[in-house]
Protein backbone atom coordinates (compact mmCIF):
# COMPACT_ATOMS: atom_id res chain seq x y z
CA UNK A 1 0.00 0.00 0.00
CA UNK A 2 2.00 2.91 -1.22
CA UNK A 3 -0.54 5.51 -2.17
CA UNK A 4 -1.60 8.48 -0.10
CA UNK A 5 -5.16 9.48 0.68
CA UNK A 6 -6.32 12.94 -0.32
CA UNK A 7 -6.37 14.02 3.30
CA UNK A 8 -2.87 12.70 3.95
CA UNK A 9 -1.59 14.59 0.92
CA UNK A 10 -3.39 17.71 2.06
CA UNK A 11 -1.81 17.47 5.50
CA UNK A 12 1.65 16.94 4.02
CA UNK A 13 1.23 19.84 1.61
CA UNK A 14 0.18 22.09 4.49
CA UNK A 15 3.14 20.97 6.61
CA UNK A 16 5.53 21.76 3.80
CA UNK A 17 3.84 25.03 2.98
CA UNK A 18 4.34 26.13 6.55
CA UNK A 19 7.96 25.06 6.24
CA UNK A 20 8.24 27.03 3.02
CA UNK A 21 6.78 30.09 4.72
CA UNK A 22 9.35 29.87 7.50
CA UNK A 23 12.16 29.39 5.00
CA UNK A 24 10.97 32.41 3.04
CA UNK A 25 10.99 34.50 6.22
CA UNK A 26 14.57 33.43 7.03
CA UNK A 27 15.74 34.06 3.49
CA UNK A 28 14.13 37.47 3.39
CA UNK A 29 16.05 38.42 6.53
CA UNK A 30 19.24 37.59 4.69
CA UNK A 31 18.46 39.35 1.41
CA UNK A 32 16.52 42.21 2.97
CA UNK A 33 13.81 41.89 0.36
CA UNK A 34 10.63 39.97 -0.17
CA UNK A 35 11.03 36.25 -0.82
CA UNK A 36 8.27 34.08 -2.21
CA UNK A 37 8.44 30.36 -1.64
CA UNK A 38 5.60 27.96 -2.18
CA UNK A 39 4.99 24.25 -2.42
CA UNK A 40 2.24 23.77 -5.00
CA UNK A 41 2.02 20.00 -4.70
CA UNK A 42 3.32 16.83 -3.14
CA UNK A 43 3.60 13.52 -5.01
CA UNK A 44 4.79 10.05 -4.18
CA UNK A 45 6.98 8.14 -6.64
CA UNK A 46 8.84 4.87 -6.84
CA UNK A 47 12.52 5.67 -7.14
CA UNK A 48 12.56 3.92 -10.54
CA UNK A 49 10.11 6.53 -11.85
CA UNK A 50 12.39 9.45 -11.04
CA UNK A 51 13.96 11.32 -13.92
CA UNK A 52 14.42 14.88 -15.09
CA UNK A 53 10.93 14.88 -16.62
CA UNK A 54 9.02 13.65 -13.58
CA UNK A 55 10.85 16.30 -11.57
CA UNK A 56 10.37 18.97 -14.27
CA UNK A 57 14.02 19.87 -13.91
CA UNK A 58 15.11 20.35 -17.47
CA UNK A 59 18.64 21.56 -17.19
CA UNK A 60 21.91 19.95 -18.17
CA UNK A 61 23.25 20.31 -14.64
CA UNK A 62 21.72 20.06 -11.20
CA UNK A 63 22.83 21.23 -7.80
CA UNK A 64 21.72 19.23 -4.78
CA UNK A 65 21.83 19.85 -1.04
CA UNK A 66 21.31 16.77 1.05
CA UNK A 67 20.68 16.08 4.72
CA UNK A 68 20.03 12.72 6.26
CA UNK A 69 17.53 12.81 9.06
CA UNK A 70 16.44 10.29 11.62
CA UNK A 71 13.84 10.00 14.32
CA UNK A 72 10.56 8.09 14.37
CA UNK A 73 11.30 7.54 10.69
CA UNK A 74 14.46 7.97 8.64
CA UNK A 75 14.88 9.69 5.31
CA UNK A 76 17.30 11.47 3.07
CA UNK A 77 16.02 14.95 2.42
CA UNK A 78 17.28 16.57 -0.71
CA UNK A 79 16.82 19.91 -2.39
CA UNK A 80 17.44 19.88 -6.13
CA UNK A 81 17.60 22.86 -8.42
CA UNK A 82 18.95 23.76 -11.80
CA UNK A 83 22.50 24.85 -11.23
CA UNK A 84 22.49 27.91 -13.40
CA UNK A 85 19.40 29.46 -11.85
CA UNK A 86 20.45 28.62 -8.34
CA UNK A 87 23.80 30.27 -8.92
CA UNK A 88 22.08 33.44 -10.10
CA UNK A 89 20.03 33.54 -6.94
CA UNK A 90 23.01 32.86 -4.72
CA UNK A 91 24.92 35.59 -6.54
CA UNK A 92 22.11 38.03 -5.87
CA UNK A 93 21.95 36.98 -2.24
CA UNK A 94 25.69 37.37 -1.90
CA UNK A 95 25.70 40.70 -3.66
CA UNK A 96 23.05 42.04 -1.31
CA UNK A 97 25.24 40.95 1.57
CA UNK A 98 28.83 41.63 0.78
CA UNK A 99 28.99 43.00 -2.73
CA UNK A 100 31.06 40.23 -4.20
CA UNK A 101 30.42 37.99 -7.11
CA UNK A 102 31.58 34.91 -8.87
CA UNK A 103 33.75 33.29 -6.26
CA UNK A 104 33.39 29.55 -6.51
CA UNK A 105 34.18 28.60 -2.95
CA UNK A 106 31.70 31.09 -1.58
CA UNK A 107 29.06 29.63 -3.79
CA UNK A 108 29.40 26.08 -2.55
CA UNK A 109 28.94 27.11 1.03
CA UNK A 110 26.19 29.59 0.23
CA UNK A 111 24.28 26.89 -1.66
CA UNK A 112 24.67 24.65 1.36
CA UNK A 113 23.18 27.34 3.54
CA UNK A 114 20.31 28.01 1.13
CA UNK A 115 19.47 24.30 1.12
CA UNK A 116 19.96 24.07 4.87
CA UNK A 117 17.45 26.88 5.47
CA UNK A 118 14.78 25.30 3.27
CA UNK A 119 15.31 21.72 4.47
CA UNK A 120 15.45 22.68 8.16
CA UNK A 121 12.29 24.77 7.81
CA UNK A 122 10.43 21.79 6.33
CA UNK A 123 11.78 19.38 8.93
CA UNK A 124 10.96 21.72 11.80
CA UNK A 125 7.45 22.28 10.50
CA UNK A 126 7.00 18.52 10.32
CA UNK A 127 8.34 18.17 13.85
CA UNK A 128 5.97 20.87 15.13
CA UNK A 129 2.82 19.70 13.42
CA UNK A 130 3.30 16.00 14.00
CA UNK A 131 4.77 16.54 17.47
CA UNK A 132 7.96 14.57 17.02
CA UNK A 133 11.70 15.10 17.20
CA UNK A 134 13.96 14.74 14.18
CA UNK A 135 17.74 14.70 14.08
CA UNK A 136 19.68 15.71 11.02
CA UNK A 137 23.16 15.53 9.58
CA UNK A 138 24.87 18.64 8.25
CA UNK A 139 24.03 19.50 4.66
CA UNK A 140 26.26 18.34 1.82
CA UNK A 141 26.25 20.07 -1.54
CA UNK A 142 27.05 18.45 -4.83
CA UNK A 143 26.62 19.37 -8.44
CA UNK A 144 26.88 17.51 -11.72
CA UNK A 145 25.22 16.42 -14.93
CA UNK A 146 21.48 15.92 -14.37
CA UNK A 147 21.29 12.20 -15.13
CA UNK A 148 24.46 11.52 -13.13
CA UNK A 149 23.15 13.36 -10.08
CA UNK A 150 19.77 11.62 -10.23
CA UNK A 151 21.30 8.18 -10.74
CA UNK A 152 23.71 8.77 -7.90
CA UNK A 153 20.95 9.86 -5.53
CA UNK A 154 18.82 6.85 -6.27
CA UNK A 155 21.60 4.27 -6.15
CA UNK A 156 23.32 5.68 -3.07
CA UNK A 157 20.35 6.07 -0.84
CA UNK A 158 18.80 2.81 -1.98
CA UNK A 159 15.35 3.84 -0.80
CA UNK A 160 12.45 2.66 -2.91
CA UNK A 161 10.05 5.56 -2.28
CA UNK A 162 10.43 9.23 -2.97
CA UNK A 163 8.14 11.97 -1.80
CA UNK A 164 8.54 14.82 -4.26
CA UNK A 165 7.60 18.42 -3.58
CA UNK A 166 7.82 20.95 -6.36
CA UNK A 167 8.85 24.31 -5.07
CA UNK A 168 8.84 27.79 -6.52
CA UNK A 169 11.26 30.31 -5.11
CA UNK A 170 11.37 33.98 -6.07
CA UNK A 171 13.92 36.34 -4.65
CA UNK A 172 14.00 39.89 -5.91
CA UNK A 173 13.66 39.54 -9.66
CA UNK A 174 14.86 35.96 -9.92
CA UNK A 175 12.68 32.93 -10.13
CA UNK A 176 13.78 29.39 -9.40
CA UNK A 177 11.98 26.11 -9.65
CA UNK A 178 13.27 23.25 -7.64
CA UNK A 179 12.33 20.03 -6.04
CA UNK A 180 12.43 18.78 -2.54
CA UNK A 181 12.73 15.05 -2.25
CA UNK A 182 12.36 12.77 0.72
CA UNK A 183 13.77 9.34 0.05
CA UNK A 184 12.16 6.77 2.30
CA UNK A 185 11.96 3.05 2.86
CA UNK A 186 8.43 1.69 2.80
CA UNK A 187 8.52 1.09 6.56
CA UNK A 188 9.58 4.71 7.12
CA UNK A 189 6.74 5.89 4.88
CA UNK A 190 4.28 3.82 6.88
CA UNK A 191 5.57 5.38 10.09
CA UNK A 192 5.30 8.87 8.61
CA UNK A 193 1.73 8.15 7.48
CA UNK A 194 0.86 6.77 10.91
CA UNK A 195 1.99 10.08 12.43
CA UNK A 196 -0.04 12.01 9.88
CA UNK A 197 -3.14 9.90 10.54
CA UNK A 198 -2.69 10.45 14.25
CA UNK A 199 -2.41 14.19 13.60
CA UNK A 200 -5.54 14.23 11.42
CA UNK A 201 -7.59 12.18 13.85
CA UNK A 202 -6.56 14.59 16.62
CA UNK A 203 -8.19 17.57 14.88
Amino acid sequence: MNSLSELQLDALTEIFNIGAGRAASSLSEIVGDEVKLSVPCVQLYQSSEINADTLSLNSPRLGAVRQHFSGPFNADAMLLFTEERAMEIVHDMMASQVGIEDVAEYEQEAMCELGNIILNACLSSMADMLDLTLNSSLPVYFVGATDVVLRQIISETNQPLILVLHIDLSIEKRHLQGCLMFLLSSSSLQKLLAHIDRFISGI
Binding site: F69, C112, E113, N120, L134, S137, L138
Partner: peptide, 8 residues
Amino acid sequence: YKLPIILS
Protein backbone atom coordinates in the same frame (compact mmCIF):
# COMPACT_ATOMS: atom_id res chain seq x y z
CA TYR B 1 14.59 22.07 16.70
CA LYS B 2 17.89 20.26 17.21
CA LEU B 3 18.72 20.62 13.54
CA PRO B 4 22.24 21.67 12.53
CA ILE B 5 22.72 25.06 10.86
CA ILE B 6 25.35 26.51 8.55
CA LEU B 7 26.10 30.21 8.47
CA SER B 8 28.10 30.59 5.29
